[in-house]
Computed example of a mutant assay.
Amino acid sequence: MAAPAFEDIAETFAFLDDWEDRYRHLIELGRALPEMDPALQVPATRVEGCASQVWILPRIEDGRFDFTGDSDALIVRGLIAVVHALYAGLPVGEVAGVDAPAELARLGLDEHLSAQRSNGLRAMVRRIRDTASAAA
């Protein structure tokens, strides 16, 4: 089950009539994403497999999963914001139980992202799941 913040995004995407509106909303989510400290944008936090530069720094606080992320592409920042809403705040043991492909499919992203962006999105999810599994 996704975090409640993701449900808000899913409801908004369901309300929006066409992909152009959803795309604009995704960009707005990217603009609202807090910037990652450039000192944290290092090879160890870089997500391989993304066409754009993507950095994710997972952390676990009080048994709950969270991460900081950033990208040099606004649309990818929006995808990071969506993934953050999907996982942030979940107990670390529940992260692996989230069916990310099914949840993200609710937004229609799989139909409208390029192959490179889809690969990058899967790489972000894999990094998150691997980190949570190692900590659980």
Rank of each mutant, 00 (worst) to 15 (best):
G93F: 10
G93H: 09
E94F: 08
E94A: 15
V95M: 03
V95F: 02
A96Q: 14
A96W: 06
G97A: 15
G97F: 06
D99W: 04
D99N: 13
D99I: 09
A100E: 00
A100C: 04
A100N: 00
A100W: 00
P101Q: 09
E103V: 09
L104V: 09
L104E: 03
A105D: 15
A105M: 07
R106K: 15
R106N: 14
L107S: 12
G108M: 11
G108T: 13
G108L: 11
L109E: 01
L109T: 01
D110R: 07
D110F: 02
E111D: 14
E111P: 02
H112L: 06
L113E: 05
L113C: 09
L113Y: 06
L113P: 03
S114K: 06
A115P: 05
A115T: 15
A115F: 07
Q116T: 13
Q116C: 06
Q116N: 15
Q116A: 15
Q116W: 07
R117T: 05
R117Q: 08
R117I: 05
R117E: 06
R117F: 05
R117P: 03
S118M: 11
S118P: 01
S118K: 03
S118Y: 01
N119V: 10
N119K: 14
N119P: 10
N119R: 13
N119C: 10
N119T: 12
G120M: 04
L121Q: 00
R122Y: 04
A123C: 11
A123M: 11
A123I: 10
M124P: 02
V125C: 03
V125W: 00
V125K: 01
R126W: 05
R126I: 04
R127I: 05
R127H: 06
R127F: 03
